[in-house]
Design a protein around this nucleic acid. Sequence first.
DNA 1: TCAATGACACTAA
DNA 2: CTTAGTGCCATTG
Length: 115
Amino acid sequence: MDAAEFHASVYETIRRIPYGRVTSYGHIAKLVGMPRHSRFVGQALKLLPASEDLEEEDRIPWQRVIGSNGSIALKGENKLRQRRALEAEGVEVLEGRGLDGLRVDLKTYGWFPDE
DNA sequence: TCAATGACACTAA
DNA sequence: CTTAGTGCCATTG
């Protein structure tokens, strides 16, 4: 499996995350069959074009992927985009973890199927 | 080659 | 609940 195939698998898997739910980088890696590649999942998302430039059906719901501990570790512009996108679909984003950290309650919004 | 670098995970304390 | 340390592995310089 090369990088392109891996990215494609990651995007497909992310599309399966239900509206209003979230999962983690590590779980996505597990679902595509490469459990130790959580960091590579992040790299795949980094390459995505801005959602604003895409039609609804072409968008990848990347905002539904957060850290395994429920934290949002992004910085600057992307952090704001992720927060807005999540709140827009009804996910509660809480302040915490330092001065500018954000987090989501995985007990409530987490989605971690086995498959 | 080798060392540094991540949109990360896990465990111990 | 939180922080600190270690593991991870493709990519980059």
